[in-house]
Nucleic acid binder design. Structure first.
Lengths: 132, 132
DNA sequence: CCGAAACCTTCCGTTTACTGGAAAGTGTAG
DNA sequence: CTACACTTTCCAGTAAACGGAAGGTTTCGG
């Protein structure tokens, strides 16, 4: 199948699939006489795999590593779990940070009357003139 | 004061302060005879302002806009509040997404024994072979 | 069989918000 | 005077693609 179909099956934009081929992440089975990339079910699996891993915020580098584990039938699940737990930790950190951010922004937004007058607690908080 | 001191006071890397000058976000008061950027308290305030806004995930474009409002003494707080609420919405969306992600990753990681055997629910979930 | 539409190719530039480094000039402390 | 810290500009690169141009291919319909 051509790149378009492979992309559709994997749920990725065509450009992205080509990009992944360019960086050697998922190379097509081969090329047609006209130079078209040819993909098979196995490549679609890998692309799908990557789409999902990316949705978990794994970097392309991580994906490369995970794909290696994915294809290595003799890998130990320990390695994979270690990566997953590390990522989980990162996500938790990000979540916490984002939560704090959200709450602070919500707080200052709530304090702002949102009228025609210029005084605005939001901007005050940015400039470090909070009265809290 | 020179760029280094301004950066320190604003809590930003020197490179970043120079970058902000380059893109016309916060330009120095002037230049010394030797061509050194000269900053004053007012610029440091703006830099600090931007650092904080950036911590709220506002883009540079947003910061430019906010800085305009910040400096415009006749602005209405309504405009600022509208921006803040929009950003809040975005953050909430991101939070929700990240939460789902976290939970799913935690779930598959928990199911993974993490031993020397190759079977791994984490990788299975990536390739779409979940049994859930 | 021809022409248009819908594919596909490569290449190049753009994006975001910086960061790093090189080469060279300047200011300062001892 | 010299070492060293600080500054300048410029160039390149990062992540992970996206957008578009110019051109080749395939396929569908008449």
């Amino acid at each position: 199948m051509n790149v378009g179909q492979a992309a559709e099956q994997a749920g990725l934009p065509v450009k992205t699939v080509r990009y992944y081929a360019d960086i050697g992440l998922v190379e097509p089975q081969g090329r047609s006489e006209a130079g078209y990339r040819i993909y098979g079910a196995s490549e679609v699996s890998k692309l799908t795999f990557i789409r999902r891993a990316r949705a978990f915020d794994f970097s392309i580098g991580d994906c490369r590593e995970l794909l290696g584990l994915y294809q290595d039938k003799s890998r130990s699940s320990r390695d994979v779990k270690a990566m997953a737990l590390k990522r989980l930790e990162q996500i938790d950190g990000k979540l916490e940070e984002l939560h704090k951010l959200r709450d602070e922004l919500a707080r200052v937004a709530k304090e702002c009357r949102g009228d025609n007058r210029p005084d605005c607690p939001i901007l005050d908080s940015f400039s470090g003139q909070e009265n809290a």
